[in-house]
């Protein structure tokens, strides 16, 4: 009986887990993009480098959220 209840809750718990996994990367991407905008506004001539580095930073940060997303389907 208890096992059945746990089975029924599994999807919901996985969903909460994904929500938790999205908090950190959300803040992280905000910081990365914000700093990149600051850098571009300060030195528009270096905008190209700042943009490339911003995408790199976003890609690395985003990976955590995406792993959470994948785990949501696996769980």
């Amino acid at each position: 009986m208890e096992l059945e209840a746990a089975e029924a809750l599994k999807g919901a718990i996985a969903l909460v887990g994904y929500g938790l996994a999205a908090i950190g990367p959300g803040i992280g991407i905000g910081i990365v993009a914000g700093s990149a905008i600051e850098a571009m506004a300060r030195q528009p001539e270096a905008a190209g480098i700042a943009r490339t580095t911003m995408f790199l930073g976003i890609a690395f940060t985003e990976a955590l959220a995406l792993i959470g997303f994948v785990l949501f389907f696996i769980a």
Binding site: L66, I67, F73
Partner: peptide, 13 residues
């Protein structure tokens, strides 16, 4: 692993 998962998960989502 993250390289693959990034592309895969973005497209699935």
């Amino acid at each position: 692993l993250t390289l693959a998962i990034r592309l895969f998960a973005n497209l699935v989502a």
